[in-house]
Each structure stands twice: as C-alpha cells, then as structure tokens.
Amino acid sequence: MRLKTPDNLNEISVIGGGSWATALVKILTENSIHVNWYMRRSEQVRSINRDAVNPDYLSFLKLDNKKIYASDQLDEIVGRSKVVLFAVPSAHLHNVCAAIPKEDLAEKFVITAIKGTVGPDNLLPSSYLARYFELKDFQQAMIAGPCHAEEIARNKKTYMTLCSSNETFIGKISNWFASSYMQVKYSPDMVGVEYAAIYKNIVGIVCGMAEGLHYGDNFMAVLVSNAIDELGLLLRAVGTPDARLGSSAYLGDLLVTGYSAHSRNRAFGKYLGQGYSVFEARQLMGMVAEGYFATRGLMATVKRLGLNLPLLQTAYRVLYNHMAAVDEFKLLERNIR
C-alpha cells in the first residue's frame, strides 16, 4: 500500500551534527519547521539546547533553538517525525542505520543529504537506505547543491535541487528550504544527481591537487572541461542519459567544489599536491572530505561498467596506491584533452 503524504508536515528529524546538517537546520528553523536533531556527541547537544550554537561546526552561527529539540538518543529522534533527513558522512551511514530498528522507518519519508557511496557494494546512499529499511522509491528524496554550508550560514544566494520520483512530496516540503537566499528546484533524476554529487567531490580533490602543484587557471579549466565529459560518460553508463549537465545540480555543484575556497575536497587535494601524504592530509583537514571515500567506491563501480575516467583514476592512484601527485599529473596531462 502506498504511503500517503500528510498534508500538515511541519516537523523533521535531522541525523548528523556536522556543518552541512547545521546549515540545513538553520534553513528549516528559519521557515518555522520544528527540528528534532540527533547529534552523536552530548557536548554538542548541550551547547545547542543551552546556547543555540554548534560548538564544532559553523560555531559563529546562532540558531533558533526554540524550534529545535536536540538529543544524542538516535531512536528517540527518529521516532519524533514523519520525515527523517540523513546528513552524515557516507562512511558513517552503515553504523547509523544499524542503530535504528528497521521497522522505525517503514512508514516515514526519508531525505538524504549525503555525497558518497556506501558499504562493500558501493551503493548510492538512497539505494543503501532503500535496501536496508525496505523503502519504496516514493518514500525517498535527496538534496543537491551547489550549497556550501558556510555560505548558507551567511545567507549567500544559492540554488538547491530536491530530487525524488514523488513530486507530490517535494511540493509539500519545497517551502521548508526556500528563502530570500535559497531558490529551490525539483528534479526527478535522483540517480543521476546522486552520482553527480559523488563525482564532483572527486573532481574537487583533483582540482586541489592541481593548485597544490602550482598549475594555473588555464590548466584548471582543462581539468574541469574533461570532468564534465567524464560525468556525462558516467551518467549515460548508469542509465541517466537525459541529464541536463549544464544545470546547477550537475555542473554548478561540480564547479563550486572544484573552485571554491570553502570546498573541503579541494583543500584536501591541495595538501596532497603540496607533497603531504594521505594520512597527513587527513590529519590536517580535521574534517571529513567525502571525496576520499567516494573515490574508492566510485572506482569499483567504474571498473564494473568498463569506463575510462582519467581524473578518477588519478585521484584513486594518489589516494589508494600512494603514488606521488606530481607523477600522476604528468600522466594525466597526456590523458586529457
């Protein structure tokens, strides 16, 4: 039986305590949506409830905690809302799901704001959640950028794409995220946009390596041009040939991740280009760069599909074969056009 979308949705459970989750909570509470917020660390919970500040991420941002119920009890938070939004790193999603009884999401709508593959089968986040909790397509949606959390926190104009096969559900939640600085669009291409969101983080790492190696703007433009071609090849191979690559959810998100100073993946790649080891770069970051995990997961998918994606291969060899970025870029120069 198809789950009916309620008419009076005004509450959501948000799972995750990072900067992206914090930015989303900001938007939601500004639109008078009550947020039940799961944060793993009790210190974060206390700070939100007492001071309306996430002490670990976007700590300059004052939230409206009159519209927030924060807790470190995951089962309690999941149980409080008909809509559950996952905004955790892809590498942590399995452990989070394992702590939620499968029946708890059976009659809920689930939104993902995760950009990476999950588990040994390298599944899309939505596919992993669907398999784990036996969700139907109409129960799921995802959020796509370009939406750097730091700019949302400062009310900088951007565009968000909400993806789902359930346009009715998206119609009822679009105003949760819309504001004077956030324009919301709808796309039915959930699979294509999820793959684009994963791939753009890898491109961010490669662009960062190029900066660390002192390549100039001209070469960076060549990298991004080739990245667009690679993304098109990938999306055709996974069955979304009609994706409008020039739209904000595809090209826009890729560009901002490759060029922006706010991009964690670019910063991570820059350290690698400067000669730091992968271990050292991860330590210097202090935050998760999703492209690190995404590279391994997407590489396995691309091998299965028989694709040749030089930018992805460069990232993989530097990250997982521990090759020097300077040597890999000499090879990359010969493999891009």
Results as ranks from 00 to 15, higher is better:
278 V>Y: 11
20 W>D: 03
93 L>M: 11
11 E>Y: 11
298 L>V: 00
241 P>I: 07
184 V>I: 13
32 S>G: 04
300 A>G: 14
334 R>G: 10
9 L>K: 03
281 A>C: 10
254 L>N: 05
2 R>S: 12
122 N>K: 10
190 M>E: 10
271 Y>N: 07
223 L>Y: 09
271 Y>R: 07
85 L>M: 12
253 D>N: 09
8 N>F: 14
114 I>R: 02
84 V>R: 00
238 V>G: 05
307 L>Q: 11
233 L>E: 15
288 V>M: 11
176 W>K: 02
332 L>R: 05
122 N>T: 11
203 V>T: 11
276 Y>P: 00
225 S>Q: 14
43 E>W: 13
226 N>S: 12
127 S>P: 02
134 E>W: 04
191 V>A: 10
129 L>F: 10
257 T>G: 10
103 E>C: 00
47 S>T: 06
145 G>A: 07
254 L>K: 06
140 Q>N: 06
13 S>Y: 07
205 I>K: 02
233 L>F: 12
199 Y>E: 07
325 A>W: 02
63 L>T: 03
39 M>F: 02
238 V>T: 07
317 R>L: 11
67 K>M: 13
49 N>E: 11
34 H>E: 14
316 Y>P: 05
221 A>W: 13
121 D>A: 14
116 G>M: 06
150 E>S: 05
241 P>T: 08
48 I>P: 01
